[in-house]
Design a binder for these strands. Structure first.
Lengths: 336, 336
DNA sequence: TATCCCTTTGCAATCGAATGCAAAATAATA
DNA sequence: TATTATTTTGCATTCGATTGCAAAGGGATA
């Protein structure tokens, strides 16, 4: 139930001039005398005129809204990325429409539909940990809606991408573990098919190879991206009496889960077992010992994703898709 | 640059019937023969018809969007509240438009403007820690846009409110500290004028009074709602050699900040000093010792806020504003 | 077959702003 | 002053969907 707002026509009527004149004056278009323009602007302010974006967008067939779909805002990584996106969007006059998929593919698809209906100008996405089919993204391509994936991407969709150099980040982490003298290093991964998992695995393998350590497939496990994965996997290792002397996890929550189990059974970190996470979540500095991890600069990733998206949105000529890699950095703390 | 979508008129042309018939068929309005309806729906699906919300909303002068303005999504409390809001919104066919104020009053006001321009159906707000003037909210009231404040509210605006029973939550916390034998209990508050701070202070005072403990004004401090406040305040206490034997903080981040300083100087929690936070953030279970705190049920608060907002939005008759109080609960852990 | 009554469909205007083109007003020039 | 050039304003249509009302279609009944 929205109150009756002043419209362009109302202003025109009040001033006894035509609405087209008012419309042009309001937008500082040329061909309006300074006197008329001032009169219109003053009157608009006085009448509390607020442009009706529905009408404007309908006429122009564009909007100044960009969609963001991420799994869960409560993760540091994503909330920081969002801040980066917002920063760019605000400065360029765009409003971000943020929807969570909650790691549900179905929700992700519904969010896409909602965004299409709302005629967003473009979309930035980090996929759910379960997304393997990209039909709902293909829909966007077919509709010519610019799309940027960041961090968690999906193959087979012609779109822009902003990713971390996951492989080298992971390699740096595992190299460091080896340098510290750890020998039996496990990699607690997430969903096997997820790009970040595949790439971090590559880095893990590269580090092993680089140091002439044999690859033991029992030391690479797959699970979710949540705490329970870390907790359960450590439990499993203990049950099998196959505990490694160091673990590298696909992200910080999984490391936290591992922490919990390790502490429960009284294992000392980093003396009896070393731990490295990924993403440099805030929590890594709050726990004990503080967690060694890999910084991904999510704010920067968000910024770049937004910049690239806006470039495509505002490009007049043929646009060429890009993939951008943001460098990551090992942050050494006390868990190794 | 949005591709040409199929429109109602396109469907009509293809079927050789009038667009009004198509429009009614698509929305399952009465007065359309089953045969025609099926034909229209099938064709719409085949043509990938997506209703243009700009046109629809323009005509109807309403939208199915509800605005959410909160300080920062990265706080557990808010991200949980958002989930609650989303849950209700989705089920009722609304899309949430989420904007952060980042604790900036200016941004908060700009966000309001953006939401007005986007003609949201209603708005849910938790104010910044610095908001004292409510003019930007009054604008909403003047425009007849339904408004619900939750948790952090501002006085003097005629709106709906959803709040915690901060006073009794605080009282329970401080009562518990006293019962545990702590005698010199400080309250590390946030901005003095913020409603949650005032109410939690009341609870603190009530508990003291209830237990015949004299109020010492040096034990009540004000600061931000962030970690630094806890850290700095403990530092100050130490400098003044006026360390209390227990602290109750306005929220969990402040407690975490205090934790950091206390650990730095080697003070044992809970033996030498007890700590209770507020809000039951996830991190309270990850630190050592785990933090005693007060659960506010933010998801529930979000749900109620959304329900109330939608009631007002969809009310046909005169609407009576409401204030709803969500009960909080002391969660005892190892910091006390 | 004619009449009446529902059911189904079509017509046309509307929401608010944008814009190509024509018309009017003003300024510049002969 | 008459004419031309330029600036300023107005007209009318458009975007896509909705809706009150009128018209047409179909069936039942006399």
């Amino acid at each position: 139930m929205i109150n009756k707002n002043a419209t362009v026509k109302d202003i025109a009527k009040k001033l006894g001039i035509h609405q087209s004149t008012v419309s042009r004056a309001l937008r500082n278009l040329p061909g309006i005398s300074p006197k008329t323009r001032k009169l219109v602007l003053d009157t608009a302010k006085k009448m509390n005129y607020i442009p009706n974006l529905f009408a404007r967008n309908l006429k122009n067939n564009v909007s100044k809204t960009i969609g963001i779909i991420i799994p869960e805002i409560r993760h540091d990584f994503f909330s920081n990325a969002i801040s980066g996106i917002e920063h760019i969007a605000y400065n360029r006059g765009y409003v971000p429409l943020l929807l969570q998929s909650n790691e549900s593919v179905e929700r992700e698809s519904l969010n896409i539909d909602a965004m299409i209906s709302n005629r967003v100008a473009g979309i930035i996405v980090s996929i759910t940990q379960n997304t393997t089919n990209g039909d709902h993204f293909q829909k966007l391509i077919d509709l010519n809606i610019p799309l940027v994936f960041f961090d968690r991407i999906i193959d087979g969709i012609q779109s822009n991408k902003v990713i971390s150099d996951d492989k080298s980040g992971a390699k740096a982490a595992v190299d460091y573990l080896i340098k510290k003298g750890y020998k039996k290093i496990a990699f607690l991964s997430g969903p096997e098919e997820l790009n970040i998992c595949k790439n971090r695995l590559e880095g893990y393998l590269a580090a092993l190879k680089n140091n002439n350590i044999a690859y033991d497939k029992n030391l690479v496990t797959y699970g979710s991206l949540h705490e329970d994965n870390g907790y359960d996997t450590i439990s499993k290792f203990l049950d099998e009496e196959n505990l490694p002397d160091a673990i590298f996890t696909v992200n910080d929550p999984v490391a936290i889960g591992a922490f919990k189990k390790l502490k429960e059974v009284g294992l000392k970190i980093p003396d009896q077992i070393g731990v490295i996470g990924f993403s440099n979540n805030l929590v890594t500095t709050l726990i004990e010992p503080t967690l060694t991890t890999v910084e991904q600069y999510p704010g920067e990733m968000g910024k770049r994703a937004a910049q690239i998206l806006l470039e495509q949105i505002e490009s007049k000529e043929e646009y060429f898709l890009r993939t951008e890699v943001i460098h990551s950095k090992l942050i050494v703390r006390n868990s190794t």
